[in-house]
Each structure stands twice: as C-alpha cells, then as structure tokens.
Computed example of a mutant assay.
Amino acid sequence: MAGIDIQHKHSLSLAKARKGVEDVARKLADKFDFEYGWDGDEMHFKRSGVDGRIAVKPEQLHVTAKLGFLLSALQGTVEQEIRKVLDEKFS
C-alpha cells in the first residue's frame, strides 16, 4: 500500500493553523471527494482508497495518508496537490 508523508512548517498559532487546515481540507475534499473531521488537533480524512490525517503541531503540519491499490498509481499527483495547497495556505 502506497503512502504519503509530508511535513510542512508554518508560523501560525494553533488556532489559525487549524482554521487553515480546515480550509485546505474543504478545498481538497471538493477535488478528491472525501469526508473529514477533527479529533483533537488531528484532522482525519477518508474516502474509498484513502485513509489519512493532518496533525496540527506548533510550527509544523504533518500529513500522512495510506493509498489503496487504485490510488497508489496517482500517489505523485495526490502528493503534489497536497503540497501545492499547503504552500498556498501556509507559506
């Protein structure tokens, strides 16, 4: 099973970083059709073939996801889109 593991630095307060992650999740959910929700400072997201989380930490976001067989072929595209959105929102 393919996986994504991205660590992205930020300089926001935890509250602002959470809001930013919520905005990113909404944008990616529209594009990739997944459900998401919060558990503490971790946002979990899921759809058929994808199971992941975004951990909001001081000065860092940590995105991890497991991709099923079909989406593993698109790992590079999915990872690139996540990085692009994180750069737009948190750089």
Rank of each mutant, 00 (worst) to 15 (best):
L12I: 00
S48R: 13
S72I: 08
A15V: 13
H8R: 12
V50T: 09
A2F: 14
G20C: 09
E79T: 10
G52E: 10
R26G: 12
V85T: 15
A65D: 07
L67P: 02
F34L: 05
G76P: 09
E42R: 14
G68T: 11
E42H: 11
V21C: 12
G40C: 10
V50H: 03
M43L: 15
V50S: 03
L61K: 02
I82M: 04
E81S: 05
R18L: 05
I6S: 09
D30K: 14
H8C: 05
V21E: 15
D39G: 04
H62Q: 12
A25D: 07
D30R: 15
R18S: 07
D51C: 01
D30L: 13
G52S: 04
E79C: 08
R47H: 06
Q75G: 04
G20R: 07
Q80M: 07
G49Q: 08
K57E: 13
L67Q: 01
Q75F: 01
V56K: 02
V50I: 15
S48P: 04
I6M: 11
Y36D: 08
I54A: 03
F34V: 11
V85C: 05
Y36V: 09
H10R: 09
L28M: 15
S11I: 09
K84A: 09
R53D: 05
R18Y: 03
F32S: 09
A73N: 07
L28K: 08
G68R: 09
D41W: 05
H8F: 15
L12C: 04
P58L: 00
A2L: 11
K66A: 14
S72L: 06
W38F: 05
E81N: 11
Y36K: 07
G20T: 12
W38R: 07
I54M: 11
D41C: 08
V21A: 15
H44I: 12
V56G: 08
Q7V: 04
Q60G: 01
K66W: 02
K57Y: 00
I82Q: 08
V21K: 12
E35K: 15
R83P: 02
F32M: 14
L12F: 15
V63M: 02
K57H: 01
P58C: 04
L71G: 03
H10C: 05
H10E: 03
F32H: 14
D39Q: 11
G3E: 15
H44K: 14
D51K: 03
G20A: 06
W38E: 03
G37Q: 11
H8S: 07
L67G: 02
E81F: 02
S72T: 11
V24A: 12
S11G: 10
A65T: 11
G49W: 01
A17Y: 03
V78S: 04
D23T: 15
L70N: 00
H10N: 10
K19E: 15
S48C: 00
V78Y: 13
D41I: 03
G37D: 14
G76H: 13
L70Q: 03
E79Q: 14
F34T: 11
I54H: 05
G3F: 13
Q75C: 01
D30T: 10
D39S: 09
I4Q: 10
S13E: 14
Q60A: 02
